[in-house]
C-alpha cells in the first residue's frame, strides 16, 4: 500500500474511525498482560457477580473472575483467529485463483467446480460439523474457518488474472520469454493485490463473527480460555441479574467487526476509480 492510498483512506471519516478502532483494539490486546488488573482465570469466591465498579471496571462473572481482564485476553483470541483464518483462506484463494486464471482450460474448470461445490454447502453447517468431530480448539477453529472461506478470494484472483492476461504488458513479458512463475509472481499478482487486501480486511470481520458465534454455541474456544463469545455464553445464564456479562462482550464484537468493515469498505472506495465518478 502506498502512502497516497493511506491518506485517501484517512480522509473519509468512516474509514478513519475504522482504522482507529482496529489500532486501539490491537494495542489493547497486545498489551493485555500489562493492562489487565487481574489474572483472567483467577477465581475469587468473595467477589462473584459484582457490578462494574472502580475495582472491577466491567464487573465480575459467576466465578468471581474480572470481566475486563477476560475481555482483554478474549480480544487476543479474536485477533489471532481473524488473522490466521484469513491468512489461510487468502493463501488458498490466491493459489487456486492464480492457477485457474492463468492456465484456464481444464484446470480452471476443475477449480471452479470445486468452488461451486464449496459454495453450495451451508458453510456454518460444515464448520460446525468439522469442529465438533475434531474436538474444538483455537487451532482447529482457525484452520477450519480458513479452509471453508477461500472461495470468494479464488474467484476474485481468477477474475483479475483473466482480465490482466490479455493486457499488453503481460503479452510483452510473455514474448520476451518470461517463465510462467515470473509472469504470475512479478506481474499478475502485484497488479491484483489491492482487491485481495480489501477482501482480506472484510474477511477478518467475518472470521471474528464466526469465532464468536462458535464460541457462543460452546464449540469454539474452550473454557477456561476467555473469548468474547464464551464470556457472552456465560453471561446468558445470568442475564437477569448481571447485565454487564452480556453487554460488554457483545459490544466488543460489534465494535471490532465494525472497525474491520469500515476500514475494508473505505479501502474499497479509495481503490475504486468509479467511486469518484458517482
Amino acid at each position: 500500500m502506498n502512502s497516497n492510498l493511506f491518506n485517501k483512506v484517512l480522509e473519509n471519516p468512516l474509514s478513519k474511525a475504522g482504522f482507529v478502532i482496529i489500532v486501539s483494539i490491537f494495542l489493547l490486546a497486545m498489551l493485555a498482560p500489562l493492562i489487565a488488573p487481574y489474572d483472567p482465570n483467577d477465581f475469587d469466591v468473595k467477589s462473584i457477580l459484582l457490578a462494574p465498579s472502580w475495582q472491577h471496571w466491567m464487573g465480575t462473572d459467576g466465578l468471581g473472575r474480572d470481566v475486563f481482564s477476560r475481555m482483554l485476553y478474549g480480544g487476543r483470541v479474536s485477533l489471532l483467529v481473524g488473522f490466521v483464518a484469513v491468512g489461510i483462506s487468502t493463501a488458498i484463494g490466491i493459489i487456486l485463483g492464480a492457477l485457474a486464471g492463468y492456465y484456464r482450460g481444464w484446470v480452471d474448470t476443475v477449480i471452479m467446480r470445486l468452488v461451486d461445490v464449496m459454495l453450495s454447502i451451508p458453510s456454518f453447517f460444515l464448520i460446525l460439523a468439522v469442529i465438533a468431530f475434531l474436538t474444538p480448539s483455537i487451532i482447529n477453529i482457525m484452520v477450519v474457518i480458513g479452509l471453508t472461506s477461500w472461495m470468494s478470494v479464488t474467484r476474485l484472483v481468477r477474475a483479475e488474472f483473466l482480465s490482466l492476461n490479455d493486457r499488453e504488458f503481460i503479452m510483452a513479458s510473455r514474448t520476451l520469454g518470461a517463465k510462467d512463475a515470473r509472469i504470475i509472481f512479478s506481474h499478475l499478482l502485484p497488479n491484483s493485490l489491492t482487491p485481495i487486501i480489501v477482501s482480506a480486511v472484510l474477511g477478518v470481520a467475518g472470521a471474528v463473527l464466526m469465532e464468536s458465534g462458535l464460541s457462543f454455541l460452546g464449540l469454539g474456544v474452550q473454557p477456561p480460555h476467555a473469548s468474547w463469545g464464551n464470556i457472552l455464553t456465560d453471561g446468558k445464564e445470568y442475564i437477569q441479574f448481571a447485565w454487564w456479562l452480556s453487554l460488554f462482550p457483545g459490544m466488543a464484537i460489534l465494535i471490532t467487526v465494525l472497525g474491520y468493515n469500515l476500514l475494508g469498505e473505505g479501502l474499497r472506495d479509495a481503490l475504486d476509480p468509479r467511486s469518484e465518478a458517482k
Binding site: G213, Q240, S246, G250, L258
Partner: peptide, 17 residues
C-alpha cells in the same frame, strides 16, 4: 454498517431479555 457488524446472537439475547 452496524447491521453488517452486529452479532445476531447478541442482538437476540438483548431483545429476548
Amino acid at each position: 454498517f452496524i447491521g453488517f457488524s452486529i452479532p445476531g446472537f447478541w442482538l437476540s439475547l438483548l431483545l429476548m431479555y
